[in-house]
Design a protein around this nucleic acid. Structure first.
Lengths: 365, 365
DNA sequence: TTCTGGCACTCTGCCTTCCAGAGTGCCAGG
DNA sequence: CCTGGCACTCTGGAAGGCAGAGTGCCAGAA
């Protein structure tokens, strides 16, 4: 089980549009039918062509004749796991079919030792956070040959490492916020009137004393009464700086994302331009990507298949995503976007491995 | 003239593969032939279909009959400005034809007043450099409906505004470099041994005194003898910090680029997957993009058409690029990538306008 | 009850043929 | 030097035909 799922559905809504699967569906699928479904998924993913009963029997040792497989297929189709583009074509899995495959028929395929070493080595070369994220996203795209998405460590889950104030001009101060995850945010502050270096130094000291090590969302509360500690004349400056700081902390727009592997979209399918355009459009919208990753469960890997994705343009794609972080808790998400017809075990393996190693790298820095 | 061009070519090499054009080619093209070429380009850009003599006469008031136009077309084809996909299809401009069009037949189409206002307004909302670049690139992609590329203000052309040193741990210092163009680069420095705050303060002061206001490439020379000013015990720290600083200054990898509008590639053409894939691949490679922009002339707009682009994957695209900067000199480049069959006057107008406004925004900040 | 071989049927994909339409090049005459 | 006319060529789409793959169903075997 890779994604939470209600187990309390009943026959009555087994036919609902949503392809989520109730294991105890109409009738329990016997082992052979499951084997057939697995074989269909595997073959279809490999060949990209509808798969027929004869070919199935030839390529997998199912131990039965094509005719039997046909009967099973008919049953699978009736239950909505597979689907026939036209009479007398082979079958292709539906979203529901992939769902079952992912949940019950597939094992996450672990990376091989050399692969793991390569990942490790490649990520180790990074010089700063930008570089780490850039390398991660490229790596993921290459490993999966799909589109990779990596979110920067989220501000709201980080803690303050240091706040720095730099006087750039008499009434101009630069505010630099450094988090434990290595993110650095900077803002220009236009102050009301000249700012003395002593005030700045005091403010700097107090800021770090109170906010250092704290989670970003908690910081505003801790600093609320700070202006009171200063002389009346200096308070305007202090409040201005604090205002900017709070703004920086709050700014959820500052959730950043990096993308790679768009060129892999060209391997998508035959009905090409129609499929790819909405996907490209979705990828351009940070908001959509963030929402996409946002739907990732905090623990464990999430797989959203086809129409399970809320965003319409991604209705014929699947998203495999997972949280990553230093230590146990996840500070951000990363994932892969590909056609529903993707190699789920391999993709999930790659995603999991990469997430694990980025977490380690972050913990070390 | 938007791109420098040799005027000293001669008949002899007028046939060379390079589509660069000598105005005094085989025979001077009379005005009507030029008008025909212009009309062909305009129609083809509009309809995306080969244009025939009859249609041309109908849509443009050339004042002559189709037969006459056919003769002109034959001449234009012989000189390599246009080309016929098959006998008895209409004509399509060649790279050389577009070249002539851009150089002599087209006027840059200025943006309308409301458009200019909109640009201005949109860019004014930016909060920092990242945001400015992001807005610029999106804007450009929307205006031109093509792929837009914007380079961050280049480090090598910026001057030092401030260098800040922040002690994060006993032996860990963060180096922050702020340039006049608003770029902020940060690096972690692992020092040999603990670093005292006094040393750090002195180093900070000296660094800013000497390097402040200087062009980045000049800085290493100016700081070479800095360690000598410190006590022997502190020199290791000083040299380590300086080394990291120089590295940051030199790092040409740090040339960053932002991209938008990939989804517009889907409007490319009919022979879609073949054309789009190499383009997407090129867009993924920062190096290629940087080289592409690097070929932009320092002053004036550069248009590179089809095979004029060195990178093979972009052989059926055109690149319109220009430098931008605060004040007169350009600190970076931006541009647009689209099919050779693009609306050159409009694209050039948009690129020029956007570059101008970004320059202004940068100058203000 | 479950599986299997056989058979008739259906549909796609591909190939070929055919035809209209658009466009050309050339020529003789204004 | 331009123009109208004409014969010619080529594409793109429609229509028809055919092989191949796949199915559903049925009757008989295990």
């Amino acid at each position: 089980m890779f994604s939470e799922r209600r187990a309390d559905e009943r026959k009555s809504d087994a036919r609902q549009l949503d392809s989520r699967l109730d294991v105890r569906d109409l009738r329990p699928l016997d082992d052979r039918k499951l084997a057939v479904l697995r074989a269909i998924v595997q073959d279809y993913v490999g060949t990209e062509e509808p798969v027929g009963s004869k070919a199935l029997v030839e390529r997998h040792s199912l131990g039965v004749s094509p005719a039997t497989v046909r009967n099973d297929m008919a049953a699978l189709e009736e239950d909505g796991y597979i689907h026939q583009p036209h009479t007398s074509a082979g079958r292709i899995p539906t979203d529901k079919g992939y769902r079952l495959f992912v949940d019950r028929l597939a094992e996450v395929k672990p990376m091989s030792a050399p692969e793991r070493r390569a990942i490790r080595h490649f990520l180790d070369g990074a010089v700063d956070l930008d570089d780490t994220v850039a390398r991660t996203v490229r790596l993921l795209a290459q490993l999966t040959r799909q589109v990779a998405v990596v979110q920067y460590p989220s501000l709201s889950r980080s803690t303050v490492r240091h706040v720095e104030l730099v006087a750039l001009a008499p009434a101009k101060v630069m505010l630099v916020l450094i988090t434990n995850t290595g993110r650095v945010e900077q803002r220009m502050v236009d102050c009301p009137g000249t700012v003395g270096e002593t005030v700045l130094a005091e403010l700097r000291t107090r800021l770090n004393a109170r906010a250092g090590g704290q989670r970003l969302p908690d910081v505003p509360g801790l600093l609320e009464d700070l202006p009171a500690a200063f002389e009346a004349a200096d308070r305007p400056v202090v409040t201005t700086v604090l205002a900017t700081l709070f703004e920086t902390l709050a700014e959820q727009n500052e959730e950043r994302i990096m993308l790679a592997g768009t060129a892999n979209l060209t391997r998508f399918g035959h009905d090409f331009p129609l499929t790819i355009q909405p996907v490209l459009e979705a990828l351009e919208e940070q908001v959509i990507l963030l929402r996409l990753l946002g739907e990732t469960a905090d623990a464990g890997m999430t797989v959203r298949i086809g129409r399970e994705n809320d965003y319409e343009g991604l209705n014929s794609t699947s998203v495999v995503s997972v949280g990553y972080g230093s230590g146990d808790e996840s500070v951000a998400k990363l994932g892969v976007i590909g056609p529903t017809r993707m190699d789920y075990p391999g993709t999930m393996g790659a995603v999991r491995a990469v997430a694990r190693y980025v977490g380690q790298i972050l913990a070390e820095s």
